[in-house]
Simulated assay, not measured.
Amino acid sequence: MSAIRPYVMVDDARVYGAFLERTFGAQVSTMIPLESNPERVIHAEARIGDSSVFFADSGPDGGRCLSSPAEPVHVQLWATVPDPDGVHDRAIAAGARSAAAVTIQDDGSRTGGFVDPFGTLWWVTTLA
């Protein structure tokens, strides 16, 4: 099964999460602070009905989250796919640049990233 989740980079993830709660009745299930600055958020997830939106604080230098090679990206796409290694390899063959090799994560999933030729940062992952 494949799925895509938007990953929105914002100036203040805590305020954005509160906005999603108020506007959509979202449930913010994850809010991970940046270790070096706990006021900033490196990853968050809000459930809206059967869907989820990932979001985090952005930074002008991309230091708080991975950026494309030239500029920080504002929207990242998170795709759950059966074979992230194959998708990553095919993307590179089609002109994308690797942002992160596909590796095993702490939860057992395999995740990697690439920047497509249009500047979008994609994360591809398996379900844990």
Rank of each mutant, 00 (worst) to 15 (best):
S2R: 15
S2A: 14
S2F: 14
A3Q: 08
I4V: 15
V8C: 02
D12A: 02
D12E: 05
R14D: 01
V15M: 04
Y16V: 01
G17W: 08
L20H: 04
L20K: 03
T23S: 01
A26E: 01
Q27Y: 01
V28G: 02
S29L: 05
S29I: 08
M31W: 04
I32L: 10
P33H: 00
P33V: 02
P38Y: 06
P38F: 01
P38W: 03
V41W: 06
E45L: 04
A46T: 05
A46C: 00
R47M: 12
G49S: 02
D50I: 10
S51V: 08
V53W: 06
V53T: 09
V53M: 07
F54P: 00
D57N: 10
S58A: 12
S58C: 10
G59W: 10
G59D: 14
P60E: 11
P60W: 07
P60R: 02
D61F: 06
G62F: 05
S67P: 15
S68Q: 11
S68R: 12
P69M: 00
A70R: 09
E71M: 08
V73Y: 10
H74W: 14
Q76P: 08
Q76E: 13
Q76R: 14
L77V: 13
A79M: 13
T80D: 07
T80Q: 13
T80W: 09
V81N: 03
V81H: 08
D83P: 05
P84S: 02
D85A: 08
H88I: 04
A91G: 09
I92L: 15
I92S: 03
A93T: 09
G95R: 07
G95W: 11
S98V: 07
A99R: 13
A100G: 10
A100W: 06
T103Q: 12
D106P: 15
D106C: 01
D106V: 11
D107H: 12
S109M: 05
S109K: 00
R110E: 02
T111F: 15
T111A: 07
G113C: 00
G113K: 13
F114C: 03
V115A: 05
D116A: 02
F118N: 10
G119Q: 00
T120N: 10
W123V: 12
V124R: 02
T125G: 05
T126I: 00
A128P: 14
A128T: 12
A128K: 14
